[in-house]
Simulated scan of single mutants.
Amino acid sequence: MIYTLPLLAVVAGYLISLFIKPSTSTGFQLLLSFSGAFLLSVTVFELLPEVYTSGNEQVGLFIMLGLLLQIFLEFLSKGVEHGHMHHQEESAKFPLLLLLSLSLHSLLEGFPLNTSTDLLHGVVIHKIPVAAILSTFLIHSGISKGRVILFLTIFAAMTPLGSWLHSSFEALDTYSIYIYSLVIGVFLHVSTTILFEASKNHSFNLSKLAVIIVGIILAYLI
């Protein structure tokens, strides 16, 4: 399940991109808001207590480094991790920098999934709208369909790869607390950006508020 669910999430996102326009679909925007709330809540309820009860004094430093890392990655990815991406003019060039950015992000988020089923669900729910936005961008970017599939396949494989590396190499356990802290920083930035953009223009939206509350409650209860 740890390896298959992230893959299925990317497939689901690709199928969504074929049938709806994610940037204008109300239902999609609600899913994005729910995913941000759920991911943030799981991070606060589960990952944060785990790293801070370790007694390691450098946890806070690595959380902030993770946040800064995600800010840097978004310069390359144009914000697709939080469901936001500008469509550029068609170009046949393969978006290598975008792939590298998303691959590193996905690889890191796979590391702690062995420790929490709830976190796995949070990542999967988050990955579906991200994959839909990414697929829409790639389809309209001018690259061939084969390259689109190649890009999505590599992107989909990175999260399971991170989980596999963590479970297969005991040497990584020595650094797991630092990796988890980096991931927390990444998740905090991504999820709070999603929630901030959900309330852009400071306009009240009852539907988005409702799904955010539901996401928080579900993350707490399960």
Rank of each mutant, 00 (worst) to 15 (best):
S181V: 08
N205Y: 01
F137T: 12
A156E: 03
T115P: 04
I217E: 12
A219R: 07
S163G: 07
H126L: 02
L161D: 03
S91K: 14
L47G: 07
T193A: 13
A210T: 14
G83S: 05
V211A: 01
S168W: 12
K127S: 04
K21M: 11
L165Y: 11
G122C: 05
L61V: 15
G146F: 15
H105G: 09
S176E: 15
H189D: 08
E57S: 06
V148F: 12
P129Y: 00
H84L: 10
L150E: 12
S101K: 11
H105I: 00
P49W: 00
I177A: 13
A171L: 12
I149S: 12
H105K: 06
L97A: 08
L218H: 03
I216P: 02
F19S: 04
L48N: 07
I128W: 05
N114E: 11
L5A: 12
L161H: 07
G36A: 01
F75S: 02
S163I: 12
E109W: 02
I154A: 10
L67W: 15
F196P: 04
V211H: 00
S103A: 15
K21R: 13
S144K: 02
G110M: 04
F204M: 00
Q58D: 15
L76D: 06
E81A: 12
S163A: 15
V190P: 12
N205C: 08
L107A: 11
E90F: 09
S207G: 05
E57M: 13
F155K: 10
T192Y: 04
P160M: 07
L188P: 00
D118A: 11
I20H: 07
A92W: 02
L31R: 04
F62N: 03
N205M: 06
I128S: 01
G79S: 06
E46Q: 08
T192S: 09
E74D: 14
L96A: 13
L138Q: 10
L209D: 12
H166Q: 14
G79C: 06
A198D: 05
F137E: 08
K145A: 07
L102K: 03
F28K: 00
L221P: 01
L69G: 11
L134A: 14
F169D: 09
L39C: 01
S77P: 01
S203H: 15
A132P: 03
N205A: 10
H105C: 07
K78E: 13
K93T: 14
I20Y: 13
H126W: 05
L98R: 05
L48S: 10
Y14P: 10
L69E: 09
F155T: 07
L30M: 12
F19R: 15
K93R: 14
V211D: 00
S17M: 05
V190G: 13
I184G: 02
F94G: 10
G36R: 05
K93N: 15
S199Q: 11
S168N: 11
F196I: 03
H166Y: 11
F75K: 03
F155N: 09
S135L: 04
H86F: 06
V51I: 14
K78C: 07
Y180M: 07
L218D: 02
V186D: 09
L119C: 08
V51M: 06
A219P: 02
V10E: 04
A37D: 01
S168D: 11
P112Y: 02
F34E: 03
L30E: 10
Q70K: 08
L195H: 05
P6T: 13
S181K: 06
I128D: 01
I149C: 09
L69R: 02
H84Q: 10
T153Y: 00
G36M: 04
S207L: 06
Y3Q: 03
I154F: 04
